[in-house]
Design a protein around this nucleic acid. Structure first.
Lengths: 228, 228
DNA sequence: ATAATATGACTGACTGGTCAGTCAGTAAAT
DNA sequence: ATTTACTGACTGACCAGTCAGTCATATTAT
């Protein structure tokens, strides 16, 4: 949306041109290859710009320049700025949710499972631009109800449900004492959120040893255990 | 700032006119009274608009309309949009920090002290627009380094130091077992942050019983204690 | 007390820069 | 030769910030 009541001309526009037109998925793809390349370049550039400037503060001209294409090209791949924004955020999280859900359901000790999840989180979220994406969702969510809903439905509710189930099992097994973690998986995840926000805003004033904090958190959850 | 590289004419402008001109603070104040009123009206309107639309997405015309004044009047009280924004955020937190620091240093049980703090937090932050202000800081902080720094210096570092001291005392007294809370007061505060963000974004999909969650959190910190 | 004058708060139409979205024209692939 | 992808100058809405003019209050003169 251009700030106010835009959607100036294009009705419910959707990019009609490239997008690997027709079914010919398999062969011949000089065009298709380029098409996918372009799309990725646009998304990558958009990520940088949106992460740095927020939705309203980002100019499509800058995205185009960074992706080394003309502005018009963006509109061949995405209907408008808002669509680009939302598709970007969606695309960023699909892999993570899949990865999180695929972490062995095995009967590995729960603490080990959580340590893996934290490792994944530190590496794939804190260590990448995904942490900025989380900040973007927090920042822009209220202005894009669809976005908040999508992320609740596709990411949060699933992650929370998985955590809740994991903790319920841990409690049943006697690995964890406090029942609250099954009822409020938010308590389990909270330090992760703090890490994201701290690293985005205050790192340079007071660096936070995220790994140590997470370890301390697990010690609390599982009742001490000084791993020297 | 008008999106890009503005600061069109006014150098380091600062509002010169009203602001209770001269020293005559005590009497004669028909003008002064109105002046303070106007300022408050502008800040109140700005809070609504910024909370709803973010910094870049907010129009001064809307703030003026909401405050029922002309746009030009804003510039009699604030140098520019950015100054208004920052003053607003600062003003919103001064009272809270003061209140938090004034919570009795008495030797009340630490759990009681924390329960009071949480009560204050639920009432004065979650129950007011201050929760939106926190979201604004998270959202716009990276774009306004001064803002992030100010909030680290004036709010966060103080709150964190106070929490850390409180927990160190509780540990010394044997009220709390885990030393980590003194080293990472973030672990103590994390659920509060989750509450702010959840209530701002996902409340309508999945309401969160913040009071219950905070109680559960304290149970964890102090090692169970079912208060029926 | 009342009128004349001075002060400074307030107004809103205006300016100039900005930017989302468009489309006629060009280049490349088939 | 034809179809499809790409380009970038252009348009029109938009909005921060300005300033000449208006009006309410305060001050001084009568």
């Amino acid at each position: 949306m251009s700030a106010r009541n835009p959607k100036r001309r294009s009705e419910a526009a959707s990019p009609k041109r490239p997008v690997v037109n027709r079914a010919s998925a398999g062969k011949g793809g000089v065009r298709e290859a380029r098409s996918a390349e372009r799309r990725d370049a646009i998304l990558a550039a958009a990520l940088e710009e949106f992460a740095a400037n927020g939705f309203a503060g980002t100019r499509l001209d800058d995205i185009a320049q960074r992706a080394k294409i003309a502005k018009g090209t963006i509109y061949l791949y995405f209907a408008d700025k808002e669509t680009l924004f939302q598709e970007l955020l969606r695309a960023m999280f699909a892999p993570i949710v899949r990865a999180l859900e695929h972490i062995p359901k095995s009967d590995m000790p729960t603490r080990d499972i959580l340590e893996r999840m934290i490792g994944l989180f530190v590496q794939e979220v804190l260590g990448t631009r995904r942490k900025d994406v989380i900040r973007l969702i927090i920042a822009e969510g209220p202005r894009f109800p669809k976005l908040a809903e999508f992320h609740y439905r596709e990411v949060l509710s699933r992650v929370m449900a998985a955590m809740s189930a994991l903790m319920a099992r841990a409690i049943a097994r006697g690995e964890v004492k406090n029942q609250a973690y099954a009822k409020f998986p938010q308590l389990l995840a909270a330090p992760g959120l703090v890490a994201v926000i701290w690293s985005g805003l205050f790192e340079r004033f007071a660096p936070l040893d995220v790994a140590a904090m997470m370890r301390a958190h697990l010690d609390i959850v599982f009742g001490e255990r000084k791993t020297p």
